[in-house]
Design a protein around this nucleic acid. Structure first.
Lengths: 131, 131
DNA sequence: CTCTAATGTGTCGTGTTCCGATACTTTTCT
DNA sequence: AGAAAAGTATCGGAACACGACACATTAGAG
């Protein structure tokens, strides 16, 4: 493959991911959340830790520093999507849980995302499988 | 598949993409560019437009508004990676080209990215192919 | 047991990036 | 020729992530 094609492939791959991301941002905002808030809800819902993930665990999943996750939790909590609970076993830890409305809005967002991801899969498949 | 698993899958998918993105940002910064600047170089190099892509074309590839691309071009140009050239055929258009040093740094970044993307491919493949 | 180090979370100020609104230049169309 | 459209640029503002720092709690060395 020529070098030009290599660059073109890379660009298409990135642009495809960006379009998905942009679509996802819009979907979140149409439901009244920012992208980061949506991702925090998903990080909580997708965690397997009993009682909910800690701030640090969410930070890992979001690939941000812990204090960024803490700030994000502030804003998301203020909107009523999540709640904090200090761990009873380890007083340093703070566990996050979805509120009923948080659970509901994430359900709605997830429904449309599963659909869109099927479409993305079709686009990404030839890009990631080939060199 | 249980709903819990669905959420877990979604989370893993996103986190995988975020980790790649974060890795890529670091790589760019180690070469003295921001993530956005790196992506602009790639958008220019990966374009098939003779004489280089216009501001608008780059904006499309980066999935940002055109004035964002214009601002980004300012900063990237100031660092000497790209150059502007007013189109001779249409005086409204501004075409972007890589400078020699821009070409070189993108080459270096691309080399490590091709490697990393092979690794990502292995992670993404089971995620995008399965429901 | 106590005191220090390590761990987990939170606060503050800063920088980057993106956007909307707006303006300017050039081209197109009638 | 003149109005509308297209392409680019400027300016002010908002979200978010970070580093540096501070605080509380737990773990471990002695």
């Amino acid at each position: 493959m020529s070098t030009d094609e290599q660059y073109q492939r890379l660009l298409v791959f990135r642009t495809t991911l960006r379009r998905f991301d942009q679509w996802s941002r819009r979907a979140a905002e149409e439901h009244g959340l920012t992208h980061a808030q949506h991702q925090m809800l998903l990080a909580i819902r997708g965690s397997v830790t009993p009682g909910g993930p800690t701030i640090g665990e969410v930070a890992d999943a979001l690939v941000v520093r812990h204090h960024t996750a803490s700030e994000l939790a502030d804003r998301t909590q203020q909107l009523g999507w999540v709640e904090r609970a200090r761990s009873t076993e380890d007083g340093r830890r703070v566990q996050l849980r979805l509120t009923p409305s948080g659970t509901r809005v994430l359900e709605e967002l997830t429904a449309v995302h599963v659909e869109e991801l099927q479409r993305l899969s079709g686009l990404l498949d030839p890009l990631v499988s080939q060199p």
